Measured scan of single mutants.
Amino acid sequence: TRVETATETAWISLVTALHLVLGLSAVLGLLLLRWQFPAHYRRLRHALW
Rank of each mutant, 00 (worst) to 15 (best):
L32Q: 02
A10K: 12
V15T: 12
A39Y: 13
L30A: 13
L32W: 06
A6V: 09
L24A: 13
R2T: 14
H40F: 10
L48I: 15
L28Q: 02
G29I: 10
L48N: 03
W49R: 01
Y41P: 02
L32T: 09
E4P: 01
H40Q: 14
T7K: 12
V3W: 01
R42F: 06
L18N: 01
L24R: 03
F37I: 07
A47D: 05
V21I: 14
R34I: 07
A39S: 13
A10H: 14
W35G: 15
L48P: 02
W11K: 05
V15K: 00
W11S: 02
H19C: 01
R45T: 09
G29M: 13
P38G: 10
S25C: 15
L31Y: 12
L30Q: 01
W35Q: 15
L14I: 13
W11A: 01
Q36W: 13
L14Q: 03
R42G: 12
H46Y: 07
I12R: 12
R34C: 07
L33P: 05
E8F: 02
L24K: 05
T9L: 13
E4A: 14
A6R: 11
A39P: 04
A10F: 02
V15F: 05
R34W: 02
W49S: 04
W11D: 01
L22G: 09
T5D: 00
V15D: 02
L14H: 06
S25M: 09
A39V: 14
V27H: 02
L48W: 07
T1I: 12
R43M: 07
L24Y: 01
V27A: 11
R42Y: 09
L28H: 02
V3R: 00
T16R: 04
H46K: 06
S25V: 10
F37D: 06
Y41W: 13
L20G: 12
Q36S: 15
L31E: 03
Q36D: 01
S13T: 11
E8M: 04
G23D: 03
L33Y: 08
L24C: 11
T16C: 13
L30M: 12
T9W: 13
V21Q: 00
L32S: 07
T1G: 06
S25R: 02
W11G: 02
L32E: 05
L24T: 06
V21A: 09
A47W: 06
L28F: 09
E4V: 12
L14K: 00
L30E: 00
Y41L: 10
L33S: 02
L32F: 04
L32A: 11
E4M: 15
R43T: 10
A17I: 12
